[in-house]
Design a binder for these strands. Structure first.
Lengths: 159, 159
DNA sequence: TATGAAATATTCCACCG
DNA sequence: CGGTGGAATATTTCATA
């Protein structure tokens, strides 16, 4: 169920999605509201779950994980009990940053971060070894990152 | 150039990647450091760019964008001048949350958020219409999101 | 029901030892 | 590094529309 968001909420979200540290007073002057009104709305957006989290974005290159890989995984759909443990495996593996179950024949798409090719190889060998229902996978290496984030458009104009 | 990070830095990053609002005092008790030391380290990590940003994560379903699509785009590599404008187009389009240039024949992978199928169709028609070098694209719909984020593993691999 | 302003409580930040 | 005090910020309270 889509939440009721007026233009003030949208303005707040637009700012906080780019900079969660911006003070309520600055946000207020930007959108035309008092600091306390902004503060109240932020608290409400958190409670309602519209703001799901506030997190630090770490530069993966800066800490020695310059590789990003996009992996298409094909899974045997028949064995549903193995699917549960595969999902848990994915959830528990920190090198897998994102994972979707997508349209196709038991297909998953993974976004993986790695230190180097060897690190990635080791990860995928472990994936295969510990999940019998993984049929095959195809890897694409990110040669360049044009854009990264989970910034959601909040303007009603954008489609 | 990988940054020098000791176990305290790693502990700080592990926490802040999940909750950027955690106070320095709480972080300090968690990792065994004083609040002021934690403050100093956070400031340094921000300056060095290890912490690239601190952002609010908005629940896209809560604001009426329940659809996520993974799009493989094939581009004519020959016309490099068109590539520049395509990149700018992608950068300027808020519905495209993530975009990588990947191994293959002029292939890009996009993560797109949409209100519904019609909204997505309209976006891709616009992409085609305004970028003559886009040869074709293939869409996969995210039927389920197992994991989402840019959480980078910071656990020591060698220390 | 939501606002703005004022009062209170936290948290941060720049020093000091 | 840890600790302290002043500044900035967030949170609560309250009167008002």
């Amino acid at each position: 169920m889509p939440m009721e968001l007026d233009k003030f909420d949208r303005g707040i979200l637009a700012i906080l999605q780019r900079d969660a540290r911006r003070s309520a007073e600055l946000i207020g002057t930007a959108i035309g509201l008092s600091a306390s009104a902004v503060q109240r709305r932020i608290a409400r957006l958190r409670e309602e779950g519209v703001i799901a989290a506030e997190v630090a974005i770490v530069d993966s290159r800066a800490i020695g994980r310059p590789l990003t890989l996009i992996v298409d995984v094909e899974v045997e759909r028949e064995r549903s009990e193995l699917l549960v443990s595969l999902k848990q495996w994915i959830a528990a593996e920190p090198a897998i940053q994102e994972a979707w179950y997508v349209t196709g024949e038991g297909d998953y798409v993974l976004i993986v971060t790695a230190r180097d090719v060897d690190g990635y190889d080791a990860l995928m060998r472990k994936l295969i070894a510990e999940n019998a229902n993984v049929r095959r996978f195809q890897t694409r290496v990110a040669l360049g990152t044009l854009k990264r984030g989970q910034l959601v458009p909040v303007e009603p104009t954008s489609e």
